[in-house]
């Protein structure tokens, strides 16, 4: 009984610890992206911002949304979200990247 409770508390502690770590990482990346925005690096500025955004959302997906240990169906559902965001970017860029500027 008490051993059980001890194990449960250990689990809870680890959960909090892990989430706190991920949270700290997210905040760290936030600060980083803010500083990078002020350093003039040309196109690299945008790239770095997007890269950081990708890392941050992956952290949320994998740890906060617990995709790391969910069933295949749930992962497919999450993947669907990703695919359709991909569609949104791809087809929008099909316009933005091919504008001649003098229509």
């Amino acid at each position: 009984m008490s051993a059980d409770r001890g194990r449960q508390e250990g689990w809870l502690l680890r959960l909090w610890l892990r989430n706190a770590l991920v949270w700290a990482a997210l905040l760290g990346l936030l600060v980083l992206s803010m500083f990078l925005a002020y350093i003039p690096m040309g196109p690299v500025t945008v790239t770095s911002g997007v890269a950081i955004a990708v890392i941050k959302s992956s952290l949320v997906l994998v740890f906060f949304m617990e995709l790391i240990r969910s069933r295949a169906l749930i992962r497919i559902a999450a993947l669907a979200g990703l695919v359709f965001v991909g569609v949104m970017f791809a087809l929008t860029l099909a316009d933005v990247l091919t504008r001649s500027g003098k229509i």
Binding site: L91, A94, D95, R99
Partner: peptide
């Protein structure tokens, strides 16, 4: 249904290339 939205934008200044796809 998620792949066709640009047909609302043929005269918006969207690139002709994108309009063709949509």
């Amino acid at each position: 249904g998620f792949f066709v939205w640009g047909h609302h934008m043929f005269v918006s200044g969207q690139s002709p290339y994108a309009s063709l796809i949509f």
